[in-house]
Design a protein around this nucleic acid. Structure first.
Lengths: 242, 242
DNA sequence: CTAAATTTGTGTTTTATAACACGTGTTTCT
DNA sequence: AGAAACACGTGTTATAAAACACAAATTTAG
């Protein structure tokens, strides 16, 4: 990956990115003061505008990326250019660390779906800490294991559930990742119909159509790109029955 | 998981299972002599007959399982009882360690597809070694990361490729996992058509039909459950084009 | 502020594949 | 040995969802 050309803005003030090491339930809380310091001194923060590519399928990972703020989609290009979104990343998530640890090129492309700030940490520094701090290592293992469970789950859902079930499940995934706005009903992410389709393994037409049907059935209500859940139980039922 | 009731035969001679700690490219080579000794003294070997269940979706993992010999399929039950095989395990593989590290119940069922011997190691012993031995920890991380890559890859293939592409890819997966017999052509695993279907996300009828078509096209030849690859390039091409 | 481009929305047609039905061959069990 | 259960194979039908075509609405750019 050619880091420089894609950089929207390399941030000079490292304190702009506090969330990674300072947020409450962060994995970084397992680090010692010294280890935290090493991380803070060696990281490089970069900001991306909505729509910009952070890395591309095939690029070689050069370090660990933590999403300080914003939202990112991770997608693979499939047969005939049809994209499949395999993961949505929120503040505090690691982006693309799978490829780093697997020692492989990126197997997916990461794009900011909102203005985002990432901070970037060299691989060898991370590895040193993993080797030295067993609890940190176990936590990394735990995160990977959970993500693998999610991926396996999705494989079955996306292949076996019917359109309505797939869309309902994808909405639940979005809720799970990004949560609700203050009203506790409106999903806190604003995706194009095309992205919703890529997440749910269907064509854009069918995503639009099926969302409309859900709205007609008062399971959700739509206003532009905002999706408000009106009947959570029913949404879960549709997802479950496939 | 109720360990005792499922045990086909608890083996008394621990040396019957050498492959785990002694094979050439085993992860256990990263262990010190002392750590190896702890592993060897604390493991429990068990043998399973073809068709027997090692653990079930929903069971709670109680330890790390290493497949000493034999072959195992890992599958999830999908919508309407349609199984999806998410992984095939060969000698030396860890079975179900994802759930163990994720701290979750098993999300899939493991069944021996050949007579198999597993050896079982308590979780806390494993965790101690991971905490103490950084290189071992990194290797575990590496294995999980690679498996996650495989899972993501399969999600896209199984949802987007057409029947022929899915079947061809599944055959390549089998070759990749189990390799060939001495003739360098016959895939070294013997599955029912139903299992091949469950691996490829299709009905048994379609697996049978499509295998026949491949045979007619001289891409493979069939003799009972044995599948011999006659034109590897063509098989790869079919997989690639979807 | 208008033109162009993109996104959203809807109806129709086509097609891949599941579902079904049925027959044959092969183990397994009593 | 005979019955039952299971695995394999093939033709037909039904259907979910993709593909296509086109219109309206919204956003972006000049």
């Amino acid at each position: 990956m050619c880091f420089i050309t894609r950089v929207s803005e390399i941030m000079t003030d490292k304190d702009t990115c506090k969330s990674c090491t300072e947020s409450k339930d962060s994995i970084f809380n397992l680090l010692t003061k010294e280890e935290k310091k090493v991380f803070e001194e060696n990281r490089q923060c970069t900001s991306y505008k909505k729509g910009e590519i952070i890395f591309k399928e095939g690029d070689l990972p050069v370090g660990m990326i933590c999403l300080c703020s914003g939202k990112v989609k991770l997608f693979k290009e499939g047969v005939g250019g049809r994209d499949q979104i395999i993961r949505m990343e929120k503040q505090g998530d690691f982006v693309g660390f799978r490829a780093l640890f697997a020692g492989e090129h990126y197997s997916a492309t990461a794009t900011a779906i909102e203005d985002s700030v990432i901070c970037y940490l060299e691989k060898n520094i991370l590895e040193k800490v993993i080797k030295a701090n067993g609890n940190f290592a176990l936590r990394v293992i735990n995160i990977l294991a959970k993500e693998l469970g999610f991926s396996n789950e999705r494989t079955v859902s996306l292949t076996q559930k019917h359109i309505r079930g797939r869309l309902a499940e994808s909405l639940l995934v979005l809720i799970n990742t990004f949560g609700f706005e203050e009203n506790n009903k409106t999903i806190k992410v604003y995706l194009s119909r095309e992205d919703i389709a890529s997440l749910s393994n269907m064509t854009t037409s069918n995503a639009i159509r099926t969302l409309s049907t859900f709205a007609q059935e008062n399971v959700i209500s739509l206003y532009g790109r905002s999706i408000t859940v009106e009947n959570m139980e029913q949404l879960k039922r549709i997802s479950r029955l496939g």
